[in-house]
């Protein structure tokens, strides 16, 4: 199982399509930096193929005022949760 981090908004960049292609059936996706925009209810649909396996970094949501607007089906984790995800994953692959 691999972890994929994505730091671009799906409203801004198509790199999310490559991320999704590279995700195996039990891989997990962590949205960080500008990528946390993907946790908004209107944008989270781009990640419906991996629903239930989408995480967003709390500090980056908070800093952008987006924490309260985050979709229910996105798991919010802080930096310690980020580290735990990297512990569980064989590899962490970065998309930007």
């Amino acid at each position: 199982m691999n972890l994929h981090t994505l730091n671009r908004s799906p409203a801004d960049s198509r790199v999310y399509q490559q991320t999704l292609q590279a995700m195996g059936h039990d891989d997990q996706l962590l949205l960080i930096e500008d990528g946390v925009q993907g946790a908004l209810p209107q944008l989270v649909r781009y990640f419906e193929d991996v629903e239930g396996r989408v995480y967003a970094l709390k500090e980056d949501l908070e800093a952008r005022g987006l924490l309260g607007l985050c979709a229910d089906n996105v798991h919010v984790v802080d930096v310690d949760g980020f580290i735990e995800l990297t512990e569980q994953a064989d590899k962490t692959i970065t998309w930007y």
Partner: peptide, 19 residues
């Protein structure tokens, strides 16, 4: 870019966790 801030925060949390 935010990358350096993200990396430094991750790095500090890593060592704090005992890694």
């Amino acid at each position: 870019r935010q990358a350096s801030h993200s990396a430094l925060r991750f790095a500090r949390a890593l060592v704090a966790k005992g890694h």
